[in-house]
Amino acid sequence: MTDDLDGAVLLARAHRPADDWKDAIHEACAPLLDAGAITDTYPARCVALVEEHGPYIVLAPGIALAHARPEDGVRQLAVAVVTLEDAVTFGHDDNDPVDLVFAFGSPDADQHVGLLSSLAGHLLAGLADRLRAADDDAAIQRVLEEVRHVP
C-alpha cells in the first residue's frame, strides 16, 4: 500500500481562477493533464458525471472531489488539488460554495486502495484548511504531499 502512494502523482496549485463549477473541475484536472497522468478526455467525463448524477462529488463544506472512471482516461494513480480565487457553486444543498477542488484518477478500480482512503482521512484531520492557507504553488504542494502518509 505504501508503494502505491509513493508512486502516485500528487499535484497542487494555489489561487486558480474559475468562472463556474465546470471550469473549476477543468482547473483541478489541468495539472494531471500536464503531467500526462490523465488523457484529454478525462476532465469532460468528470463534468459529465456531475451533470448526470448531481453534485454528489461535493463531499464536505467547500470541498469537491472530481473523478471519472478508470476507462475514461487514466494513465497513473493521481490526485490534484486547486484552491479557487473565488468560490463556485455546484448546486449542493449543504456544502456550497466550493473553494477547494480535487481531481482524482485511478487506472484500475482496485488501485486506489490507500490513496483515496488516505486523502479522506487527512481531510477529516484538517487537511482542507492547511491547503487553503497555502499562499503559492510550492506551499500547497508541500501540504498535499502529506497524503502519501496514511493517517
Partner: peptide
C-alpha cells in the same frame, strides 16, 4: 453518516 469517514474504509465490490 459521514461520507469522508466512509471513504476512509476503502470498501470495494
Amino acid at each position: 453518516a459521514s461520507v469522508l469517514s466512509v471513504l476512509t474504509l476503502d470498501c470495494h465490490q
